[in-house]
Design a protein around this nucleic acid. Structure first.
Lengths: 197, 197
DNA sequence: AATTTATGTTACTATTCAGTAACAATATAA
DNA sequence: TTATATTGTTACTGAATAGTAACATAAATT
């Protein structure tokens, strides 16, 4: 008998629901103020059931990170494949990055990255972000080389840029006053030409 | 017999040491992974002694906040008293803000603001930051009026700026590769003229 | 249909830790 | 010197909660 979804597909969907609900709760109440019982209740299951999908509480953060970093890196692959000036690449990256991080799982990752209790996982998380930051620094350096970007400290610029972009996760909601396009335009204008009148 | 320090002065100093040590621990290990026993041990006292200086664990965050917001608002008073263009005021604000938040107590506040469990304290903390953000928006609006700042959405700009500046607390250390002056210059250049080549 | 594998439950353990009660010592003031 | 306020300690309670063992059921495979 043919099922609409295989076991593995169902499993993947259930894990995804867990991640999404957990991420939302972590963002609203905080990681330590959200118990696994709370998360289980959202799924209408009991706590031990969660352990069929995750190794432990921290593993939720790890899985949110894997999902989000995967998306960001794929996006960076696309951006860097285009034949653009460094500045235009940076422009495109910012636009796509804002689209990606407007999502509970991504927001959860951004807020909790590098905060794992397990030292190995923590180191891996920091490494994951360093890799992404390095790729953006590379874009900036390309821009400096082709003179589309002003000569500056690419390391500091990349960090300042990421802090602004990641900060968006804690205030921007797609149903609020500011539209996604208006937000993207303001960020691009600030990065592009600054604020001088 | 005349003492070098009055009781009240000694008390204030001890509270300050508690805040400083707690703030440092919270930044290194995180709020929930740092117990009051840990903090007490740093002072070479026992946990109940802390309760002579603080109401409860959360009160440490509140006191770090009061101290830091007090400094920031005093600084804003000074900045706004100067006869400067909006852009130059913003410039000065950024410079002074970076100097203030390079300090464990301020870093602790920036990282934990708005995360209190007590609803009243949480609301107050959010309000405190809103007030400061409002004052910076006012500076931006002044700049737009006198044409020293490009016409833009002052709300979004203020938030993006604060995220960049507050982000500094989690990566910048005065003993690292980047000097405070270099950091300030890069931020001012980014905000001032952007990154276009 | 029988067997196995995946998915779920109830009931429990073990640990951590904020906060407190009761008591002790020390410094200041009368 | 004696009385009082301040600062500290030891020893405990109570609550929360991550993770597990043992058991139950449903679904797929043979």
């Amino acid at each position: 008998m043919q099922q609409s979804l295989t076991r593995e597909e169902k499993r993947k969907i259930k894990l995804d629901v867990i991640l999404r609900n957990a991420a939302k709760a972590f963002m609203e109440r905080g990681y330590y103020k959200t118990s696994l019982d709370d998360i289980a209740r959202m799924q209408n299951v009991t706590k031990p059931t969660l352990y069929y999908y995750i190794k432990n509480k921290e593993d939720i953060l790890v899985k949110c990170e894997e999902q989000t970093c995967g998306r960001i890196n794929a996006m960076l692959d696309d951006v860097m494949a285009e034949k653009l000036s460094g500045f235009d690449m940076l422009h495109l990256f910012i636009k796509e990055y804002i689209k990606i991080i407007t999502d509970d799982v991504a927001r959860c990752h951004v807020r909790h990255r590098g905060q794992m209790e397990d030292d190995v996982l923590k180191a891996k998380s920091i490494e994951n972000h360093k890799d992404i930051e390095f790729r953006v620094r590379e874009i900036i350096r390309l821009g400096i080389k082709d003179h589309s970007v002003r000569d500056c400290n690419s390391t500091i610029l990349a960090i300042l840029l990421f802090d602004s972009l990641n900060g968006i996760t804690s205030w921007y909601h797609s149903d609020g006053k500011v539209s996604e396009n208006e937000l993207i335009d303001e960020v691009l204008a600030l990065v592009g030409v600054g604020v001088k009148g």
